[in-house]
Nucleic acid binder design. Structure first.
Length: 584
RNA sequence: GGCUCCGUAGCUCAACCGGAUAGAGCACCGGCCUUCUAAGCCGGGGGUUGCAGGUUCGAGUCCUGCCGGAGUCACCA
């Protein structure tokens, strides 16, 4: 399905032939042979460095080897020419019928076009968002949510068996602070004056409904009781309510994790203790004193003995604490157990999506994963950089402390989920992203969402036009599939097919690199090629899609547009975006 | 100071696990609307890929050292 993969097979068969004829040695390493589109389309459809890679081990001059390979490649029907260029590249031009066949394949496969098997059904766990259950999600979470969700779709399309997971940090001091904040709201409902909410608690109004739920559930039960009595029950209610809130925020964005795992449940079930006992039995835990960090902040440093994990043995910079001063587990201790738990659930391939502020935590967790799975698991961590929210070029100020920050919900209500999703993927994940509220809804070339949707809608507008102007022409799906593709001979038409033919390769490359943003960029390219072709019809009537006295040519061109629409739609589908049928 | 990420056209960014003459958009200049949505398209100028070395047939991409920016730095999550 991936044409570059197919050409690669051809090339390797040619290498085998050369080896069989003793022209080159047997068993040369083929791993470094690249088969890819040349940067400059004038160089051909497919280029390979095979001759350059093999030249040295074959003890031949690259160009001589290229010559031999090229001649053999030209024996294949679909190969028009195989030219030698530069230091020994082989540039392959494919014949028109090959591209016409591609178009037919796309129409046959519909939105399954682009599916790949490189994942080989391997289980992958993608953990993303994983925000503290202490309040509504904000705009920064939106990026991680979209990134993780689309990465999951992408890997699914590439043949992996993907599980989307959300880790609930419901065991630390933060949720105790949440409980205390909710308790204040509870007292507020009971008629007490709560005054200024103290530093360190959550002042947001979103906890008022939780206060009411508590009041309804417990009446005056905790009115005069001590914290040790009310903390746990209030905390449970508050966490439940926050998770409901978070789940509905995510759902608004079209994000629905497959499973939610609770940190507290891991602690309560003894998983954390079991995990650390295991490390301890292997001599990887000790009581020790860390050196102070070099450079800054020397003043507040006090050397203290702590329970430490030998992270250095597994690649981290220093050993890491497992217990806090009060004797409870650190977040890290829970995280070790959590990643081990994922491994025990069958995920030897794990991906975590984190915010930029957690970058310093990567080595630590990776070292733990190595230790705890005996190097049997791979953990990739993808970092999403900050999102800067702007309005007409001016930054919108946000402060989480005051409870005054732009929520994900408010953002989605303002511009819509599809736009949020697309814009979040208009930058590489590790680059900062500007999100300008005023420009993302603009209907112009510089708004990529609009531009891609417009291309999709334009495809429909062609069908409508045909129905009106050429009512006798059958452009049902089955008729389009049977149309005469050989009538498509214009360069720009074939170029469009070539671009579409690159979709499977793009999926695979994006999946390997774990870079879903490439899909958004590709869709932009596709849209651009189509808009260009469309406008060419203005100047050259022969290039129009609809030509009334040439029904067969028109049908073939509609088939081309139909295929394009399918590819755009399946790309948008991958991004979790609904393609628009018409622009309004 | 340690670690991580980033540094590409005036601006915002691409560049497919090392490939050929580094590409788009915006802005600027010049064209294209009785005709499928001009909400668009075409053309032009614009670069020592932060600097200096190294690895090799070949480096924006890999390695080392600097410069500049962001994040982070026992015990929080």
């Amino acid at each position: 399905m991936n044409l570059f993969f197919n050409v690669r097979k051809r090339i390797i068969s040619c290498i085998d032939k050369l080896a069989a004829s003793e022209a080159i040695p047997h068993g040369l390493a083929l791993d470094n042979i690249a088969v890819e589109p040349p940067r400059d389309a004038a160089h051909g459809d497919v280029a390979t460095n095979a001759a350059m890679v093999l030249a040295k081990p074959a003890a031949m001059a690259p160009r001589d080897l290229a010559e031999k390979l090229g001649r053999l490649l030209e024996e294949f029907d679909e190969v028009e020419s195989a030219d030698i260029a530069g230091p020994g590249f082989i540039n392959i031009h494919l014949r028109l019928p090959f591209w016409h066949q591609c178009l037919g394949d796309i129409l046959d496969l519909k939105n399954r076009f682009g599916e790949s098997t490189i994942g080989e059904g391997k289980k992958v766990n993608i953990e993303y968002v994983s925000a503290n259950p202490t309040g509504p999600l904000h705009i920064g979470h939106a990026r991680g949510a979209v990134f993780g969700d689309v990465l999951a779709s992408l890997l699914t399309k590439a043949g992996y068996d993907v599980t989307r997971e959300y880790y609930i940090n419901d065991a630390g001091a933060q949720v105790d602070a949440l409980a205390r904040s909710a308790f204040l709201r509870y007292r507020e409902v009971l008629g007490y004056e709560i005054g200024q909410i103290e530093e360190g608690l959550y002042p947001g109004a979103y906890l008022k409904p939780v206060g009411q739920i508590l009041a309804k559930k417990y009446k005056e039960k905790f009115e005069n009781s001590s914290e040790s009595e009310w903390l746990a029950p209030v905390r449970n209610v508050a966490i439940d309510e926050m998770m409901k809130l978070i789940r509905s925020d995510l759902a608004k964005l079209g994000v629905e994790p497959d499973i939610f795992t609770s940190e507290r449940a891991l602690v309560d079930s003894g998983e954390v203790v079991a995990c650390l006992n295991d490390l301890d039995s292997r001599g990887l835990i000790y009581e020790g004193v860390l050196d102070p960090p070099k450079g800054k902040k020397l003043d507040e440093w006090e050397p203290r003995p702590q329970t430490l994990f030998k992270a250095v043995e597994f690649g981290d910079d220093i050993d890491r604490a497992l217990k806090k001063f009060d004797g409870t587990w650190t977040y890290f201790a829970g995280d070790i157990a959590y990643h081990r738990d994922k491994f025990n659930r069958g995920f030897s391939y794990q991906i975590d999506v984190w915010g930029a502020d957690h970058g310093g935590y990567i080595k630590r967790v990776q070292s733990a994963v190595k230790a705890v799975t005996d190097n049997q698991a791979t953990l990739d961590v993808k970092i999403c950089q900050l999102v800067k929210l702007l309005d007409n070029g001016k930054p919108i100020k946000m402060s989480k402390r005051s409870g005054n920050f732009v929520t994900l919900r408010a953002l989605v209500d303002e511009v819509g989920k599809d736009i949020v999703r697309f814009i979040m993927l208009t930058r590489k994940n590790d680059a900062p992203l500007d999100f300008d509220l005023s420009s993302v809804t603009a209907q112009s070339r510089d708004n990529p969402v609009w531009y891609v949707q417009y291309a999709h809608a334009r495809c429909n507008s062609l069908s409508r036009m045909i129905a009106r102007q050429m009512p006798g022409l059958d452009i049902t799906y089955s008729s389009l599939k049977a149309s005469k593709f050989e009538l498509l001979t214009e360069k720009s038409e074939i170029d469009l097919i070539k671009l579409m033919a690159g979709w499977p390769r793009l999926i695979e490359a994006s999946a390997i690199a774990k870079e879903p943003h490439r899909i958004a960029f590709y869709l932009n390219d596709l849209a651009s090629a189509f808009h260009s072709l469309w406008t060419q019809g203005k100047e050259s009537p022969s290039l129009r899609f609809m030509i009334e006295d040439e029904p067969e040519l028109t049908r073939a061109r509609v088939a081309l547009v139909c295929a394009l629409q399918m590819v755009i739609a399946s790309g948008l589908e991958l991004l979790g975006i609904k393609p628009l049928e018409e622009m309004r």
